[in-house]
């Protein structure tokens, strides 16, 4: 975001920044001499409550499991310090997650992961539709599988999908929790925990430019020597078809002309 620096500021800009500062951080900002304290308090209340309501509804589990005081402290600090760049209030929640990642002091390890997982749902909800013009077929084995852009895949240390008031994990799990959220064909959001092989396949699909489904699975047999290659080819092919049925993989395409050259 654009940075406003003294001393180039006009007196109007200085007046406006001083007013906004009193709203963001009333305790640490000098009062405006010609604004009554109760009116400034009203502005603060209206603005802060708007942010608090937005974040509380975007992160219902996080809001529920944290002490109210802790939750409000996070929201207050965020509102005081963060310079939001999105014009869309709903998307402010994504900036809140980024902010938490950069300011983790004293927060339990699961907090940021839970925030990321709760944001995934809203993020998918707000996202534009996928561009289907690339898709030419549905042979996800012999052609190049096209992964939906409307998926969010996370590998968490904590089982954040199970967190609730009665279950707060004390220590990280020994194995990663690979969690997938995606937009289904009926526009609702799906959630599932995926095993290590499926997670690896999804990760490969995310960066895949030119390999067919079969080629991807063959590469996976190299990376997972602990499994029989035939098992990966067979199981992986079933997973690819299941992903296609679930709208996680949208279809297939052939090589672009430019790829062939």
């Amino acid at each position: 975001m654009y940075s406003l620096k003294l001393p180039e500021l006009t007196s109007l800009q200085q007046q406006q920044l001083a007013f906004a500062a009193c709203i963001r951080d009333p305790i640490n900002s000098p009062a405006i001499h010609d604004v009554a304290a109760d009116r400034m308090a009203l502005y603060r209340e209206l603005f802060y409550n708007n942010i608090l309501d937005t974040l509380s509804s975007a992160f219902p589990v996080l809001h529920q499991v944290l002490e109210e005081k802790h939750w409000q402290q996070l929201c207050q600090q965020f509102f005081a310090r963060h310079h939001s760049s999105t014009p869309c209030l709903s998307r402010l929640s994504g900036e809140f997650v980024d902010y938490l990642q950069g300011n983790q002091i004293n927060n339990p390890g699961w907090l940021i992961e839970l925030a990321q997982w709760e944001w995934a749902e809203l993020d998918l909800f707000l996202a534009a539709d996928a561009d289907l013009s690339l898709i030419t077929g549905d042979d996800v084995i012999n052609e190049i599988p096209v992964l939906s852009p409307l998926i969010r895949l996370h590998h968490f240390d904590y089982p954040v999908h199970r967190i609730c008031k009665d279950f707060i994990p004390e220590i990280p799990d020994q194995q990663k929790n690979s969690l997938l959220a995606w937009r289904k064909a009926d526009d609702s959001t799906g959630f599932m925990q995926v095993n290590a092989l499926s997670a690896d396949l999804l990760t490969r699909l995310q960066s895949n430019q030119q390999h067919t489904g079969q080629q991807l699975l063959a590469m996976m047999t190299e990376a997972h020597r602990e499994f029989e290659p035939a098992m990966i080819m067979q199981g992986g092919s079933e997973i690819l078809h299941a992903f296609h049925d679930a709208n996680i993989v949208l279809g297939s395409r052939t090589l672009f002309n430019k790829d062939k050259n």
């Binding site: 940075s3 406006q16 500062a21 603005f47 708007n50 939001s84």
Partner: peptide, 24 residues
């Protein structure tokens, strides 16, 4: 009105009623 300083605040702040603000 205005609703931002260095970033968005998502609600309406009162513009100073001045000639300078009219021009701006």
């Amino acid at each position: 009105s205005y609703c931002s300083d260095h970033g968005h605040l998502y609600d309406l702040m009162p513009i100073p009623f001045t000639e300078q603000a009219v021009d701006h």
